[in-house]
């Protein structure tokens, strides 16, 4: 049941609990209990909104920054990652396998905000060896949702 609830609310967290109970063939009480439990267990970490900012304003940009760092004895990458993700402008931080170590995502910022973050904050951190900033030119798909993906129903009634 948990997985079914999660699969559903991952796509639509605004569904009414009574309706979700009908769809999944269970009771509203059961859904409420599972949601509360999963919130307190840290499985559900928030209910956010997927926004296509390009349609709201044109001066916001998204950036993905590759960061190479020197890991620290006893702490690995965790300490340096923490120093980075604590900046409020950072949207996501991942430890990555491959040619660099951390991938830092900044969303919905102005060009100036991104550049000052990289030059004044990120690059100056002690264990940061180098950074490469990629600006997102166009977002096609986010959180499993195709942006601008409206489709008309082309099916015809062939036979009853």
């Amino acid at each position: 049941m948990r997985e079914k609830i999660l699969n559903y609310i991952e796509k639509n967290s605004r569904v009414e609990l009574a309706e979700l109970a009908v769809l999944l063939g269970t009771t509203e009480a059961e859904i409420t209990k599972e949601l509360t439990d999963m919130e307190s267990e840290g499985i559900i970490c928030g209910y956010h909104t997927l926004i296509d900012w390009d349609k709201v304003t044109t001066d916001r940009v998204n950036a993905l920054i590759e960061v190479r760092v020197t890991p620290q004895r006893g702490h690995g990458f965790d300490d340096i990652a923490e120093r980075i993700y604590k900046y409020p402008e950072v949207n996501a931080t991942y430890l990555i396998s491959g040619g660099y170590d951390l991938l830092v995502s900044l969303e919905g910022k102005t060009l100036k905000e991104v550049s000052s973050f990289v030059t004044q904050k990120l690059s100056t951190l002690e264990n940061v060896i180098s950074t490469t900033t990629h600006f997102v030119l166009k977002k096609y798909k986010d959180h499993g949702t195709i942006l601008n993906g409206d489709k008309t129903d082309e099916r015809m009634i062939m036979m009853p």
Binding site: K4, N7, Y8, E19, V22, L23, L24, G25
Partner: peptide, 13 residues
């Protein structure tokens, strides 16, 4: 199948 089943339950309801 899961998606159809949800809709089926919704209609019956």
């Amino acid at each position: 199948r899961e998606s159809y089943d949800q809709r089926r339950r919704f209609l019956m309801h």
